[in-house]
Design a protein around this nucleic acid. Structure first.
Lengths: 248, 248
DNA sequence: AATTTCACCGATAGTACTATCGGTGAAATC
DNA sequence: GATTTCACCGATAGTACTATCGGTGAAATT
């Protein structure tokens, strides 16, 4: 019964929001090719020409979309990072570092899809956004790993840390998509795989930190394991304060 | 001086080839949105209307493109796999398993870009192709790992093997792109990272193969390493025989 | 040499999308 | 209550692309 006593500006904002949501849907379902003012306006329930009341053109809407989407995703990542930092040595939390991004992706898969598409599409208006987002993730993740105790000593280590972060990020996206496609029903299992991938790579980074750059693949002195590993056993507890265990 | 005594069908084939190459270029540079009969025809040096002499419509050209591109990439992968199988226990070769795909990507980055874009674009005509290609890679890689000795015992192991393959594939693509973007100048280093990523993940798969599926994340007994690794030494440097050093 | 074939061309009808414009009515302001 | 503002509308000019058609000349066939 309660009618809708919307003020003019409230109504406008609402329409604008509907346009943005509609654009997101169309973009996800039909790609940038199918994203037209007509379709978006129709999906939002207004006339095509009214689109221009809210946005100068489609480009402007895309920009807003990029900012909003980026913020949503980045927020989820920040959250994951925050939680991971809370107890860096706790194995369970370490797994969280991967599970939370996975969940974030699954909550808004269209955002990742759009970003991934744009990332490899030179003609996309969202290209810049996608590049910046990707770079932000890389650095986020690299910082996460650093927080876990994998501090980068020299230039090479820093680059490797970044490479690992980038690789694991890509794997995260892939597994999340696989999960959404029904191939990997268990997100926890996805997280486990990601933890394992990271571990292996970080081990490489670790035991070479001091030595020469012998190309022969130095997996040699595998003696030292990654930091957060040994003290792992404790089902979930942490007494062994992981990250600082190994000192070079 | 030698004029061009092209027969009619030869000339036609040549034009057709030019159209395909032009389409590939346009597709890479401007995305599917910018792929129009006019642009492709112009890039190939013929009139827009003549496009239809060679293809029923753009869709048909895209199909041809998908087949050709897929074949090119798949060929490179087969090669990598073949070489890897030749000496499964050889560490150097193991690295090849990753370096060769990296090189293949760098030789034709546009093919990967196009595939990645299509993979996440529901509206793309290349969607099916991209999905099939991705699935093929996954299975290829999973088979590679199996060939390296990581046979999947039960259902769970098989799924994990697939997940690892998918994750490492994604990481491969990401690192190759990073290399092309100038961030990772050394392809060998990329391969090293990939080897390390795989190792870590495969270890997970290994030492849980028999036990119960304790969710608590069993990375605990980091002991047993992957199978095909021990006999590796032969490579070049080896004394320490790296990865197998730490047991338990 | 005469005839046929056909790759290519320019022109164009048809379609889809963009972006603007004048009009309308209800909210906001006076 | 009169006036102004403005979100929304339908109509439409402009632009870009698709796909077809009849014409042309050189290669292929006879």
């Amino acid at each position: 019964m309660t009618s809708t006593p919307l003020s003019r500006s409230e109504a406008k904002d609402l329409t604008r929001r509907r346009l943005i949501e509609a654009a997101l849907t169309v973009l996800d379902e039909e790609g940038e090719t199918g994203l037209t003012t007509g379709k978006v306006a129709k999906a939002a329930g207004i006339a095509q020409s009214s689109f221009y009341v809210h946005f100068k053109d489609m480009q402007e809407l895309l920009l807003v979309l990029a900012e909003e989407g980026g913020e949503r995703l980045r927020g989820a990542m920040r959250e994951a990072r925050r939680r991971a930092r809370e107890a860096p040595g706790d194995l369970e939390r370490h797994r969280d570092t991967f599970r939370i991004p996975l969940e974030a992706i699954c909550r808004h898969p269209e955002l990742l899809r759009i970003q991934l598409r744009a990332r490899h599409d030179p003609s996309s208006s969202l290209r810049d956004f996608a590049d910046r987002t990707a770079a932000a993730y890389r650095e986020h993740h690299a910082a996460d790993l650093a927080a876990l105790g994998y501090t980068a000593g020299d230039e090479r280590d820093r680059r490797r840390l970044e490479m690992i972060a980038e690789g694991v990020n890509a794997a995260t996206n892939a597994l999340a998509m696989g999960h959404l496609e029904g191939r990997y029903p268990d997100l926890d299992e996805c997280a486990d795989i990601l933890v394992a991938l990271s571990r292996g790579a970080l081990r490489l980074l670790r035991h070479e930190s001091g030595g020469t750059a012998e190309r022969g693949e130095g997996p040699g002195h595998a003696g030292l394991d990654g930091p957060a590993e040994q003290p792992a056993h404790p089902g979930r507890a942490q007494h062994g304060g992981g990250q600082d265990a190994q000192q070079e």
